[in-house]
């Protein structure tokens, strides 16, 4: 675990159109670092799902991405409403998204389970009325 490269982003919660900007930038940065395309794709999809969640459920937040020798770590933090029941939120199909979100193409309740599927490690810390922090890691081949 010697060198670390760290990227930090603010994710704007008021602008659905610009959502995904942080994930897009990370994708470009990882390409520049020469990370394998299949790893980049897993990181991009997982982070994008998390970024969209921060925009539609939590009014925005921050994203931190660290690249170490062993893994790529994505930490998404927000001061949104929090998740009451994490086990329930992790179930495929569970969503509290309102209809207007669904008409934008999201809100199927697939994001969190998809983030788990595409990463090697995922931890959710959440407190109602305080916020949510999600940590995900994708291992790099040694």
């Amino acid at each position: 675990m010697s060198e670390q490269v760290i990227f930090t982003f603010d994710v704007d919660g008021d602008d659905f159109t610009s959502a995904g900007q942080a994930s897009s930038q990370v994708k470009r940065n990882l390409r520049q670092l020469g990370i394998a395309p299949d790893i980049i794709k897993r990181v991009s999809i997982a982070m994008y799902e998390g970024e969209i969640n921060m925009v539609i459920h939590a009014g925005g937040g921050t994203a931190n991405v660290a690249v170490t020798e062993e893994y790529i770590e994505i930490v998404l933090s927000d001061q949104g409403p929090g998740i009451k029941d994490i086990t329930q939120a992790m179930q495929e199909g569970f969503s509290t998204a309102p209809d207007d979100v669904r008409s934008l193409g999201f809100g199927a309740g697939m994001g969190l389970p998809n983030m788990k599927r595409y990463t090697d490690y995922m931890d959710i810390q959440s407190q109602v009325d305080v916020g949510t922090t999600i940590t995900m890691r994708v291992n790099l081949p040694s």
């Binding site: 995904g20 991009s44 994008y48 193409g105 809100g107 309740g109 697939m110 994001g111 998809n114």
Partner: peptide, 29 residues
């Protein structure tokens, strides 16, 4: 787009009737 992100694997083309910037973001990711 939720379903595209969750169920699609290596498909290179997305046909859709949805029009917003997240369609492109999804395809990009």
């Amino acid at each position: 787009m939720s379903d595209v992100l969750a169920f699609v694997k290596d498909q290179a083309v997305l046909l859709t009737g949805l029009v917003n910037s997240q369609v492109i973001r999804t395809a990009e990711m």
